[in-house]
Structures are given as structure tokens and as C-alpha cells.
């Protein structure tokens, strides 16, 4: 894997992760638990898909094969998508969505903060903008985790179930793919190990406050970064890509 290939793959990991998370969040639009929350979630989806667009634009430029961000988003199949498995998990109930979200928000917050110091100027500029947005997302999701954990018996139960179910996908966030290792050596990507330390500390403190617990001895499910996904991803893509695939010559 040469530098250019590694950078391209690395940008796809980041871009695909944002895109699939944004796509999942946008499924909630018009169906949220109340109007203010519907708007907040839609706003978070907007920011997240905005990050995806910037990252995939940059990936297309690095690849330099005449593809643009839409070609990357709409004309790759599941095996060519490199998002982490966590983001493709179904929305479930609102606790399932918020637990998935708080895992991702805590991760993205520390990740983008570190990425501000990237040697790559495009990424550092993106990170500086994104970290402000994600710090709001993180406040929002951790606000809900506290309320679910320490709200009613039902909400506590739902949140704990969601944690028990989703915890197995968190390890992948911190397991570097070859491209990420190369980017870290080049001072372009932050060290996932240092992010993991900060992330765990935050999540432990948050869950403690929320009276929620972290499951022990969980086997971590990997593979998304190699394009080996759960069965959910292809349904997301089938829906998302249907129009451009049906009319490949059309411009929208």
C-alpha cells in the first residue's frame, strides 16, 4: 500500500463512517419522539452528512480517477464500503440510537480534536470545523444517556439493553487498519490508542453518572474497515443508491 492508496483508504474509512451514521440518523427525520428532538437529530444528521461529503470529495481528489463524491457514495457496493460496523446498526428504539450516538460522538469529539493537528491541511481544516459541531452532538447524546439511565425504570432498562447489544462494536473504533497505521506514522491521523484512553474515561464517567454499566469480557466484532460488514449495510446502500443506480447517466 503506497501513500496515496493509504490516504485514499483512510479517507474512505472516515467518510463512509460519517455517511452511514448520517444516513441512519436521517431515518428519524419526521419520526422523532417530539418536535424539538426531531429537529436536533435532523441537525446532527446534516452536520454528519456534511462531514461525509467533504471527506469523500477529498478522497475522490486523492484517488484522481475522475470519480467525484457522489460516484464514491452511490456506485460502490458493500464490500467496498469501509465504515465501522457500529454505525450501520439499526436505529431501534430511541435508546438504541442514543447509545450508538454517544459512542460515536465521544469518539468523534476526541478524534476531530486530535485531527486539528494533522499535517494534512485539508483534514485539519475539516477537523477544526467538525469539532465544534461534534461537541454539540456529544452534549446532546450524553444529555439523553443521563436521562435514560437515571430517568424511569423503562428508560434505564432500554438504555442498558442498548449498551449490552452495541458494546461489541466499539472495539473496532480503536483497532487500526493498515491505512490508519500508515497515516499515523505520517502524522496525518491521530493515534487511536490515545483516543481510546480518552474515550473510555469519558464513557465510564458518563455511565457512572447515569447509573449504567459496561458489559465485561465482550468479544469485539471487527471487519467493517476491511469491507466485511453486518447484514444491515447492504439494505442501507440499496435504499440510498437506488436512483443513481437506476439512472446511471442522469445528473441530479
Amino acid at each position: 500500500m503506497n501513500f496515496q492508496e493509504a490516504l485514499f483508504k483512510y479517507l474512505l474509512i472516515l467518510g463512509d463512517t460519517s455517511l452511514i451514521l448520517g444516513q441512519r440518523l436521517s431515518e428519524w427525520t419526521a419520526h422523532g419522539p417530539f418536535l424539538e428532538e426531531d429537529l436536533a437529530l435532523t441537525n446532527i444528521a446534516l452536520d454528519t452528512i456534511g462531514h461525509a461529503k467533504t471527506l469523500l470529495e477529498y478522497a475522490a481528489k486523492v484517488e484522481n480517477k475522475g470519480r467525484d463524491e457522489d460516484a464514491l457514495a452511490y456506485f460502490r457496493n458493500g464490500r467496498e464500503y469501509f465504515n465501522v460496523k457500529l454505525v450501520e446498526q439499526p436505529n431501534g428504539n430511541y435508546a438504541d440510537t442514543m447509545v450508538r450516538q454517544v459512542f460515536m460522538d465521544a469518539f468523534r469529539y476526541h478524534y476531530f480534536k486530535a485531527l486539528c493537528n494533522s499535517k494534512d491541511e485539508t483534514l485539519s481544516a475539516l477537523a477544526q470545523k467538525a469539532v465544534k459541531e461534534v461537541s454539540y452532538h456529544y452534549r446532546h447524546s450524553s444529555w439523553w444517556i443521563k436521562r435514560f439511565g437515571d430517568g424511569t425504570e423503562e428508560s434505564h432498562h432500554k438504555a442498558q439493553n442498548a449498551i449490552n447489544n452495541l458494546w461489541r462494536f466499539t472495539g473496532e473504533l480503536f483497532t487500526p487498519d493498515e491505512s490508519e497505521k500508515i497515516m499515523e506514522e505520517e502524522n496525518i491521523a491521530p493515534s487511536l490508542q490515545s483516543i481510546e484512553y480518552l474515550w473510555k474515561e469519558d464513557i465510564q464517567n458518563l455511565f457512572k453518572e447515569a447509573t449504567l454499566s459496561i458489559p465485561e469480557n465482550t468479544y469485539m466484532q471487527l471487519g467493517g474497515k476491511q469491507g466485511i460488514h453486518t447484514e444491515h449495510l447492504d439494505y442501507i446502500l440499496a435504499e440510498m443508491q437506488s436512483l443513481p443506480r437506476m439512472y446511471p447517466d442522469a445528473k441530479w
Binding site: P33, F34, Y94, K146, R147, G151, T152, E154, S155
Partner: peptide
Amino acid sequence: EGKWVREAAAAY
């Protein structure tokens, strides 16, 4: 489906 969510916020 949002009922338990609103109730959790209120209880908290």
C-alpha cells in the same frame, strides 16, 4: 413511541 422518552426526561 416517544412517550417513554418524554417521560424519562420529565422523571430525570
